[in-house]
């Protein structure tokens, strides 16, 4: 993130922190006090989260004041900046990384066999980031085969080490 955008980001985060801190405080105050169970009033569950909520809200206020002093309230969101953000290469790669990793970790795992899911993930990851669609397939055959070999070796190695050496019941 650019240095000049930081006060703006801080301005927004500080609001979120204050709201978060206050909601934590309110939820903590609503926690049961167990008076009917003859419980010591200083041991009730809400004390520490309430304290933390208050501290987070306070730190949020400090951040808010500081960002206002740095003129962070000028948010300056225009159609152009939003468009730039969504079309940039960085955003694409960012989204792609998260997407394939999430599909592997949260969708495939536990549904299909662990070594297969893992092998597919490694291959897909290497392929997506290394394969250049503009070039012909035959030029890149070596690259694809390499990805295949890596995915098979590492999927087998990790499965073997964790299943037989560390005795973990792998998902799926």
């Amino acid at each position: 993130m650019k240095e000049s955008n930081m006060p703006r980001a801080d301005f927004v985060t500080s609001m979120i922190l204050i709201a978060f801190g206050i909601s934590v405080l309110v939820l903590s105050l609503q926690m049961p006090r167990f008076e009917e169970h003859d419980v010591n009033p200083y041991s009730v569950p809400g004390i520490v989260p309430g304290f933390l909520g208050a501290v987070i809200a306070f730190l949020g206020v400090v951040l808010l004041i500081r960002s206002i002093l740095q003129k962070g309230y000028r948010l300056g969101i225009s159609g152009g900046t939003v468009k730039d953000f969504f079309s940039s290469e960085v955003t694409k790669r960012f989204a792609l990384t998260i997407a394939i990793s999430v599909i592997y970790a949260l969708v495939l795992l536990g549904r299909i066999s662990y070594p297969i899911a893992t092998g597919v993930y490694i291959f897909a990851f290497i392929f997506i980031f290394e394969y250049e669609w503009k070039k012909s397939f035959s030029d890149q055959l070596k690259k694809v085969l390499m990805a295949l070999v890596i995915s098979v070796i590492f999927s087998a190695a990790v499965t073997g080490v964790f299943r037989y050496l560390f005795l973990v019941n792998l998902p799926g």
Partner: peptide
């Protein structure tokens, strides 16, 4: 990184 990162990630998962 294209080859290292997926392996780091599967280790993170496991």
């Amino acid at each position: 990184r294209e080859k290292l990162m997926p392996i780091v990630f599967i280790l993170c998962v496991v």
